[in-house]
Structure formats: structure tokens, C-alpha cells
Amino acid sequence: MPLLSLNLRAAILSVSLLIVGLLIWEAAIPAQKAVGELTEYELLTGGGQPKAGVPPPSQVMAKAWEQLSDPFYDAGPNDKGIGIQIGYSIYRVLVGYALAAAIAIPLGFLIGMSPLAYKALNPFIQVLRPISPLAWMPLALFVIQDSEASAIFVIFICSIWPMLINTAFGVAGVREDWVNVARTHELNPLRTAFSVILPAAAPTILTGMRISIGIAWLVIVAAEMLVGGTGIGYYVWNEWNNLDLTSVIFSILMIGLVGMVLDAALGFVQRAVSYVE
């Protein structure tokens, strides 16, 4: 009997695990008493109110269907579709991330090329890097005076470090032979940077960018819980305040899915620029 391919066997195992997990979850939730079975007394004393409990997967799926079939509805400040909320979050992440990349990559080049710049800037990087991005939030809110821009700033400050450090590391590690090839071909510094150093360091730079987008997506949820208004983080917190755990679980899953897509997109770019020596 020919053995099924590894991928197919893995897929079968994944699906089985998912089904088993969902069944256990479904079975573990105690059934709510149906309202009709209550006595009049119980109804009067509020016993008919469903107790807040973790919803079973069937409810989450129903919620997902409901939300995803109309993701972009807008019924006022506290009632927007999941698509709009995620859109706000992605927008903030991408703006903060792009600003960080625009600064981190050129600065990383400088640090990687110049031992002086490395030694001079390294203490600052080492002190600033371990600061939780949310610790910047009060200062950002005070200085910028705008919650939207503050959230973007927090994304910027958390995604700049991995990109900066990886770019510097990648640029400093470019093999001297390749730089010598550029030198013996009389390439000017700008062409050397773009046609030799950048492609040589690109895989390392992309590793940093991939770490950064992951961190940025982690941080945006927390940041939006703080600044409020819009975004997936705000949505989670708002549904928690509504005690709508079904929506909370649904949005947790959506956060995971979007994070996976962001990572996969950068993984794709990373594979495109990687090379074998």
C-alpha cells in the first residue's frame, strides 16, 4: 500500500486534532437551562438570564458567520464590523512600521558600515530596546496630543529595533570578497550599497523586518485597548465590557489569522531575496 504523502498525513492529523479539540470544548460547556423550563419565580428573580460563561464553539462559529458575512457595516462609534476594526489596526501597524523601516534601514546601514557609529550608538540602542513599547504611551499621548498618532508612534518605536539591529548586523557581515569585487569594478559608494551590500544583507534585514511586523501586531492590540476608539484591540476590550465572550473569542481568532498573513507576506519576500552561498 503506497504511503500517503507527508503533507497529506500532516493535514489529516491537523484536521483531526481540530475536530477533537472543538468537540471537547463543546462538551465541556455546561448546557444552559432553557428559559421555557423555568418557573415563574425563577424568571422574576432573574434566573432566566443566561449566566456569563465561555461560549461553545458552535456559538463562536455562528458569530463568525454573522460577522464575516457583513464585515464592513458601520452602525455608530461602538458598533462597527470586524473588517473595519481590523482595517484600522492594519493601517496603524503599516504606517508605524513603514516609518520605522524608513529610519531603521538607512541608520542600520550607517551603523553597519561605520565602527565609529556602531560604538557611539550602541549604548542608546541597548537602553531603548528593552523598553516596553506601551511604557511610551503616556509620554506619546502628552507630547503628540492625539491618540491615533500615539498608537502609530508606539508601533514605530517597537518595530524599529529588530530592523535596526538586523540591518546593522547584516551590513557589517557582508563578505569582504564581495565588497572587493565592487571595489575592483570601481563602483561608487551608492552603487556599491545598492548592488552589492543591500542584496548581500537582504536576508538578514528581512529577518529583522519579519520579527518587527510580528511584534508590531502583538503591540497594536494592547495599544488600542489603551487608546480606544477603533481597531481590533479596542473591539476586544469593548466586547469584554459588553460581556460578549463569543465576540471576544472570535476576535482573538481573527487577530491570529491576520498576524499569520502579515508574517507569511514577509516570509514570501524573505524567500525571494535569500540566496545560497
Partner: peptide, 17 residues
């Protein structure tokens, strides 16, 4: 260095990308 002096290095020094 100059283009007037071409070099073939021992380790080939080809750009792998």
C-alpha cells in the same frame, strides 16, 4: 582599485544572488 586591473580571487568571489 581600478577596472584597469582585473582580479580573479581564489574563492571565485561571485555574487551568489
Amino acid at each position: 582599485p581600478s577596472l584597469d586591473r582585473g582580479v580573479v580571487f581564489q574563492n571565485y568571489s561571485l555574487l551568489p544572488w
